[in-house]
C-alpha cells in the first residue's frame, strides 16, 4: 500500500499497463497542444500582451500625461468634470493611475489603433476595462505601452482591480468609443 514501502525492491522496471500508457501519452500531447496554442496566438492571434515597457520617473510620466491632456482635451465630462482627451487616430495616448483615479478620460474612435501609455504615480493599480474585460497590471516607475484597437462603441469603465488602499473601490475611469469621424 502507499503507506508502506514498495513490495518489490526494484520497482522501476515494473511493466506499465497499456491503459496507463495511453493516458500518459494523451496527457502529454494535450500539454504540447496547449503550449503550442500560446505560441500560435503570438503569430496569428489578435490579443497579446505588449512587450514594450520603459522605466520612467513618476513625475515625468505625470508631466507627459498633463501635456497630452492639455493638448487634446475636447470637453469636460458632463457629470464628473473630468477632462476628456480625444487624441488623433493612430496616435499616442496617456492615462495615469493614482490614488484613487484614472486620469484623464479618453475618447477613442472605433476601428482605430492607439498606443496607450499606462503607468502609476504611487502604488500598483489594476487597469480593468469593462465590460470588454481586458486586465493589465499598472506599476509605478514603469510605463507600459499597449497597442489597442476598440471594436465597439459606447462608454467603458476602467475599474481598478489591484487593491490600492482605502479608496480602491472608488477608483473608476472611463473610455468613450465613438464611430470614426464622430464625437460623443
Amino acid at each position: 500500500m502507499a503507506i508502506h514501502p514498495p513490495e518489490q525492491t526494484i520497482w522501476w522496471n515494473e511493466r506499465i499497463e497499456r491503459g496507463e500508457l495511453v493516458w500518459i501519452g494523451v496527457a502529454f500531447l494535450w500539454g504540447v497542444i496547449m503550449f503550442s496554442m500560446m505560441v500560435y496566438w503570438h503569430i496569428d492571434g489578435k490579443q497579446n500582451l505588449s512587450n514594450e515597457a520603459y522605466r520612467i520617473d513618476p513625475g515625468v510620466f505625470e508631466q507627459r500625461t498633463e501635456e497630452f491632456t492639455k493638448k487634446f482635451t475636447v470637453r469636460e465630462d458632463k457629470n464628473t468634470g473630468y477632462p476628456v482627451a480625444k487624441p488623433p487616430a493612430g496616435g499616442d495616448v496617456y492615462m495615469l493611475a493614482r490614488l484613487w483615479e484614472w486620469w484623464p478620460m479618453l475618447e477613442l474612435e472605433k476601428g482605430q489603433t492607439y498606443r496607450l501609455h499606462l503607468s502609476s504615480l504611487d502604488w500598483q493599480h489594476g487597469f480593468s476595462l469593462q465590460p470588454t474585460n481586458i486586465n493589465l497590471q499598472v506599476h509605478p516607475g514603469i510605463m507600459h505601452v499597449v497597442t489597442l484597437t476598440p471594436t465597439e462603441t459606447g462608454s467603458f469603465g476602467v475599474v481598478c482591480n489591484e487593491f490600492c488602499g482605502l479608496g480602491h473601490h472608488q477608483m473608476v475611469g472611463r473610455i468613450y468609443v465613438v464611430e470614426a469621424g464622430k464625437s460623443q
Binding site: 520603459y54 522605466r55 520612467i56 515625468v60 514603469i142
Partner: peptide
C-alpha cells in the same frame, strides 16, 4: 531569468 529581464527594461526617452 525573470530578474535579468527586469533589469533590462530600457529607460524612457
Amino acid at each position: 531569468w525573470g530578474l535579468i529581464e527586469l533589469t533590462q527594461i530600457p529607460l524612457a526617452k
